Amino acid sequence: MTTPAVIAHRGFAGVAPENTVAAALAAAEFDETAMLEIDVQPASCGTPVVIHDERLDGTRDGRPLTDASGFVWETDLETLQTTRVLGTDATIPTLAEFLEAIPETLGVNVELKNPGTTELRFAESLAPDERDDRRGIWEPFVERVVEECRAFDGEILYSSFCEGALAAVREAGPTYPAATLVWDDPEAGLEIARRYDCEAIHPPRNAIAGTALATTPYYGLPEAEPEIDIVAEAHAEGRTVNVWTVTNWQQFAQLAEAGVDGIIADYPGLGTVSQTS
């Protein structure tokens, strides 16, 4: 059994303020960290910033996500750059600031979260007559993201739950690898990955056949043995399988045994523990 690559979810969000430079630098201190996973959206001026929630007034375990409120894409850049994350001194970085701060020995999985709209068409396989329209909605933002990433000499992997974002990536940055993020329909995820010749696919941890995780509650996703073996099918097509999101060593061990290539994790050290247990 090979050990999957460890991808630090929002910079190991279980131990650091998510999607911040501080979290990224802390994650870089662990030898196991192969890649950082981050989320990007636009400020009101269009500048890509690193944050997950579409609203600034979300919560994490009852704690305010930030000390501001409103939609990210309706907030000016100066406000975002002084907005503190999870009660710490860490603030929301621009994508350019984030990439400039981290070592280029680390890869970065840039999840294209939102181009600035409440109508995302999240995790949908689009009909042919809808694809150009959705690509057009994403293109201005994706072009800005790709432009910022060109200054980073490390590995970049783009991913999204939104087909329009992947279509825009193939136009704006065709030389970069891309991954489709899967929600509740693995077959649709594979279909989208094939449509855009994605190098990777990112299913949730309970979409992996033959594991106890497949029948364990997770984000309200189906609690049944998957109808398809997404790992086998993706590997047969030459695609990498990176699974989200792992929070303990038991989950890590199950997914490693199932043969996934990468594990997006909230905590460091889970692979090390699973190998010694």
Rank of each mutant, 00 (worst) to 15 (best):
P115I: 01
L120D: 07
F122A: 08
F122V: 00
E124N: 09
E124D: 08
S125I: 00
S125Y: 07
S125Q: 05
L126W: 10
A127C: 05
A127S: 10
P128I: 04
P128V: 12
P128H: 13
R131H: 14
R131Y: 12
R131G: 14
R131T: 15
D132N: 05
D132W: 04
D133H: 14
D133Q: 10
D133P: 00
G136Q: 04
G136C: 05
I137T: 11
W138G: 08
W138A: 11
W138H: 03
W138E: 02
W138C: 05
F141G: 00
F141K: 06
F141Q: 03
F141V: 00
R144W: 06
V145N: 14
V145S: 12
V146Q: 04
E147V: 00
E148V: 08
E148T: 08
E148F: 04
C149R: 05
R150M: 02
R150V: 01
A151Y: 01
A151C: 02
A151R: 01
A151P: 00
A151D: 04
F152A: 10
F152Y: 15
D153E: 12
D153T: 04
G154T: 05
G154P: 01
G154I: 10
I156G: 04
L157Q: 02
Y158K: 01
S160E: 06
S160D: 08
S160M: 06
C162V: 06
C162M: 13
C162P: 05
E163Q: 13
E163S: 09
G164M: 05
G164K: 07
A165G: 09
L166G: 07
A167N: 12
A167H: 12
A168W: 01
V169L: 08
V169E: 01
V169Y: 05
R170G: 13
R170I: 11
E171W: 01
E171F: 04
E171N: 10
A172K: 04
A172E: 02
G173F: 10
G173C: 09
P174M: 03
Y176P: 00
P177H: 08
A179E: 07
A179M: 07
T180E: 14
L181D: 03
D185C: 12
D185M: 10
P186L: 11
P186V: 06
P186K: 11
P186E: 01
P186S: 08
E187Y: 04
L190V: 12
